[in-house]
Design a protein around this nucleic acid. Structure first.
Lengths: 334, 334
DNA sequence: TTGCCAATCCGAAACGTTTTGGATAGAATG
DNA sequence: CATTCTATCCAAAACGTTTCGGATTGGCAA
């Protein structure tokens, strides 16, 4: 069917060893035969069989992207898609491919994620969107398989992480609101199963303390990262604390939900109530008014994860944990 | 390092042939040895090397997902992510994995998509988000590799397509607006390099004709599928034709952009101007007012694509082209 | 002449499976 | 008893690469 190294060898009148070494740039092959081999390979449109190579080299040059149940999460793509881009592009540059699988996939096959990776002989795995309470996550962290997890500070010999400095991020938001003159600042958080939620809450509290403001539970609300969730959060917070003049949200989508609800309630933003989001998703720029937010460098996040996983694979010295600095983007809601 | 079929054979006291046949459920192995082998395999936590299997079986059980330059497109995920879910989940059920690659990847490696697929020995490929003018797309259509393309009606011996019936979809929108009493209906289209744009335009025109309304170029505007593009479209259309009472958009994102712009311009929706979108993205439900739109069954789209590509791989009789019926979802903007 | 070295080349093993084409033994049949 | 059949099992080849350990040549020094 398809043409093999044997065909090239025959056509070029050399051994398959020589073809292999010529094409892979080894030094012990004469310039003349090298050119001959290259020419013949080109003419026959020879493509080395990656599967055969993987078998003998014991590396597949592919890394897995494990995301939590894809189907259930309806808004994760606002954050994840761009991170995926970063990963994919950088991995491609580094000569690796990205294979997608989800927690559901593994469950269907009745094997753990790790087994799945081992079976497919993946060189490494990147984990994203996994909850704190996932039963199998520890297994991949402890495994000899190179891995990096996004948004969870897990570390081990062969496992690193990359995440945004969420504490610092929300502190930025609080400080910004403080600078704008706000002294009663609410906070709408995401669900607590997400690791980032803890950090963002801590950033909020530490931010208040740093500004010399009192920390009060009636200023906080736990939502679910969804658009209507953000709206409800705003409404309930405002009901409990009518003296609120600003709210920080743990995600842009919630902030935009809050923005909409504010408009419905006839609350002027930013005049009566200031709002700041988190993430800087594509939509943030286009809300009315445009959303002030804390930008996560999603593309870079993906790239760093990619670099880290291949560095680990190659046993290169590299940091095993990266905290990306977010930045304040001031727009129209503050 | 990892444990092989040989280890299992030795431990169970049988040949590797028997282990293979026992584990794969062949009939010519005794019940007693079958149980013994299964037990030993379990105890040793044996996982067959998928790479070795692929080499000998000449199938990798993975299909590629080729998407156009990931990084450039900033809003494609609104549509694509859910389609990907559908693909991934159904493929997982069918025992296939999904490997991601983009037009940029191939260009970096200086090989065509097809070469990439052949090299990795992919069993099939699904193509999504490719423009009409892509130079390589014809190559994969004509290739012996099983393929299905999304949103482009390309067909060949081993290539099928799945797409929404866009003509019918926009007709639905026009008819709905007509039923609501509108007689001057504008249309904001996406960019013309997308195949769907042509169909949607045709649906608009045929819809008008069917309702006995005049077709007029001043009622149409070509935008770029983006949020601000939709806003601009609405504004320009309204400037040219102040008598407009309704606008159909070729995407939800553009419709939401139009919605925002209308609010900024003090135009009441739906009282003064009715708006209907296309896609039914997650946000549509949560705009203010909630967006009336034409729903594309994105999850099903992905699933059908998955089914079609494996049917083609297995040479099963199956339709080589699927037109999914969209449906009208009436909400608050009409 | 002999020995040695560098430059090229190649045969064969290895990677971990599946599968082909028997081999073996016991049971059933004539 | 000889023959055939059935139920189990297995040795070896095959998949398409990479790589180890030489083999071959020609040139050059001793």
């Amino acid at each position: 069917m398809s043409i093999t190294i044997r065909d090239v060898a025959k056509a070029a009148g050399v051994s398959i060893t020589t073809v292999s070494r010529a094409l892979n740039g080894y030094s012990d092959v004469g310039e003349k035969t090298r050119r001959k081999v290259a020419l013949v390979a080109q003419e026959l449109n020879y493509r080395p069989n990656a599967v055969a190579r993987s078998l003998v080299m014991n590396e597949t040059k592919t890394i897995g992207l494990l995301v939590s149940e894809l189907t259930r999460d309806r808004v994760g793509h606002f954050f994840m898609f761009r991170v995926m881009h970063g990963m994919h592009d950088r991995l491609a540059e580094l000569g690796y491919d990205l294979i997608l699988f989800s927690t559901t996939t593994a469950r269907q096959r009745l094997v753990s994620y790790l087994d799945f990776c081992m079976q497919r002989r993946l060189d490494g795995v990147i984990v994203m969107g996994i909850r704190l309470d996932d039963p199998y996550i520890q297994e991949v962290v402890d495994s000899p398989l190179s891995s990096v997890v996004i948004d969870l500070p897990l570390q081990s010999e062969r496992c690193g992480y990359v995440m945004t400095d969420n504490v610092y991020g929300v502190k930025l938001a609080v400080r910004h609101l403080f600078d704008r003159g706000h002294r009663t600042i609410g906070f709408v958080n995401g669900y607590s199963q997400a690791a980032v939620s803890r950090d963002r809450l801590r950033g909020y509290e530490e931010g208040l303390v740093q500004m010399g403001l009192p920390v009060d539970r009636t200023l906080m609300h736990e939502a679910d990262f969804s658009l209507p969730g953000g709206g409800d959060g705003l409404q309930q917070l405002l009901q409990a604390r009518p003296d609120l003049t600003a709210i920080a949200f743990a995600s842009d989508l919630m902030a935009i939900g809050g923005l909409q609800r504010a408009r419905e309630l006839g609350i002027a933003v930013p005049e009566r109530l200031a709002i700041v989001g988190f993430d800087d998703i594509e939509l943030a720029e286009f809300s009315t008014p445009p959303l002030t937010t804390i930008r996560q460098k999603r593309l870079e996040m993906g790239m760093r994860a990619a670099e880290m996983v291949v560095a680990t694979i190659k046993n290169q010295a590299a940091p095993h944990g990266i905290l990306l600095a977010p930045e304040l983007v001031v727009r129209g809601t503050t």
